[in-house]
Write a protein that binds this DNA or RNA. Sequence first.
DNA 1: ATAGTTGCAAAAGTTTTGCATTGTA
DNA 2: TACAATGCAAAACTTTTGCAACTAT
Lengths: 146, 146
Amino acid sequence: MVDNYTGKTRERPYLKAVQKLRHAGLRPTRQRLALAKLLFDGPNRHVTAESLHEESARANINVALATVYNSLHQFTDAGLLREVVVSPGQTYFDTNVSDHYHYFLEKEGCLEDIPEGLVGIDRLPEEPAGKKFSRIDIIIHVTENS
Amino acid sequence: MVDNYTGKTRERPYLKAVQKLRHAGLRPTRQRLALAKLLFDGPNRHVTAESLHEESARANINVALATVYNSLHQFTDAGLLREVVVSPGQTYFDTNVSDHYHYFLEKEGCLEDIPEGLVGIDRLPEEPAGKKFSRIDIIIHVTENS
DNA sequence: ATAGTTGCAAAAGTTTTGCATTGTA
DNA sequence: TACAATGCAAAACTTTTGCAACTAT
C-alpha cells in the first residue's frame, strides 16, 4: 500500500500487527489487522466483543460483530489473548496473557489486573493422576462500602 | 393437602422446604416448593437452570424454564444458593453457600467443590478506602493430561 | 376485597454456525 | 485453476422482562 500524498509505503504502522498475526499462524486480513491494532498497539486492555465492535465502528472500521467474536476466539486460541468470564453475558478478553488475577469492579462493571505478587497462594491440592490443572482463575469482586 | 388413601395430611414431606422458603421471605408456592425440594433435600448440588428444568420435567413437575431462572435468582438473593460462572453460557448454582472454591472438570463439563483447607491464600491486596472485597472466586480448571 | 407477588410467553441479549465470497499458491 | 480460509447473515442459545393471573392477608 502506498500513501497517496507522500508516495511512501504505509505498511510500517501495521508491521508489528502483521508480524504478530503471522507468527500466530493467522492470515493478516484487513479485519484482523484493524482489530489487532486496536488491541495490541498500546498498553494492556480488557475488552468485550461488544466494546471492541463499538470501538471499531467509531474508528470507521467495518467489521461484523460475529467477526469480532470469531477473531477474539482465534486470537485467544493462538495465545494472544486470555478469556475472562465474570458473570453470564460478561466475557472479557485480556491482552495480558501472563499468569495473573483480576479485580472486578461491580459499580463500573470493568476488570482490572491485580498487580503481580499481591495475591499469594501457599497451598494447592494435588493434581489427580492423569489430570492437570490447566488454569487457575481468581476474581476478586470489589464493591462500594455500604 | 390431604392424601386420598390415608386421609392424613401430606404437608410433612415439604415442611423443611416450606420453612426454608418462609425464613428466606419467599412465599412457598407450588413451583418454588418443588424446586426447593429438588435442590435442598439431600447432599449439596451444582445445577444449571437447564439441568434443573430437565430434572423437574422428569419428576413430572410443570415449571417454565423462565420460572426456574427466576427462582434460582430469588434463592440466590435470599442467600440459599451461590452463583458460579465458569464460561459464557455456563452458570451454575451451588447449594453450598459457605466460603469455598471450585474445580471445573473440562471434560465432564461439571463443577466440584474443593474440600475446605486444600487451597490456602496467604496474601491479599489491601481493600481500597471506601471499597470492600465482596467475594473471591477461585476456579481451578482440570483437564486430562496430554 | 386488594395490594403485592408470581409465573410464564415473549423479547432481548449473547454467541455460534453455515456458506457464499475472497484470498492464496 | 483449485483449494483452503474468511467474513458475516442468519440461526441458536441463554437470560430477562412485562403483564395477566394468582395469593395471602
